[in-house]
Amino acid sequence: MLSKRIIPCLDVREGRTTKGIKFENNVDIGDPVEMAKFYYEAGADELVFYDITASHERRDIMIDVVKRVAETIFIPFSVGGGIRTLQDMRTVLLAGAEKVSVNSAAVKNPDIISQGAKAFGSQCVVLGMDVKHVGNKPGIPSGYEIVINGGRTYMGMDALEWALRGQELGAGEICLNSIDADGTKTGYELNLTRLVSENVNIPVIASGGAGTPGHISDVLIEGRADAALIASMVHYGTYTISLIKEHLHEQGIKVRRA
């Protein structure tokens, strides 16, 4: 049986992680490579780096980070943010990332999913989805709509339909982020997660809203997610990976005890 995965997410801007972190043990809280090492040793199953560098010209800084992370940790990690072309994907994968995540670029140009899957294999291509609950709205049968620009732009696309289309195009995994839950620390969007997880055949990583270990067990059990993305609950030292996994284990969820 596969273990459910716990995946810390690091936001990187111009080579530095953007959230301050209260680590002890002399970890440089702004250095993504040191943080990657910290989480690797703490038992994270995978890592996600999200490049929020504003300008395309500064992308080489991120590539350097990816290379240094790849020399330091020996678990899979993915890189997302600003991936627009097949060449962007190639650069990130050659630098040592296991997977590359496409989000708004795929919304604007779905072919990038199939091109990436064909060139590098489906297992390398993660479809990142930002989703908002819109309720009863024409053209959005599931009640969940795809948004971009941090939730400011509604795309008129149904989230479930887009997930199924992404799978058909060759995405190997979906990272499903609820914009409504993101940053609230009040729990994942369970209905959305369950809806997508039960309808696709590829793994779903739940994202947005994690505040306690209980939220994670909820989304893995009720939400049927394969993995949970976490950020501030571990970045600020409130919880450790091993404490979270201890809780999940007690709930009967299979996790890797590193």
């Binding site: 049986m1 995965r5 489906s122 297992q123 190997g172 394969d226 890797r256």
Partner: peptide, 30 residues
Amino acid sequence: QRLKVPHMGWNGFSPKTEHRLLDGIGPTDE
């Protein structure tokens, strides 16, 4: 629940033999 293919992620391992390459590998390693 239907198992997804490809099999992707962390899973266990039961050694079936003693082997130099498996020295130090324990029953909980994934």
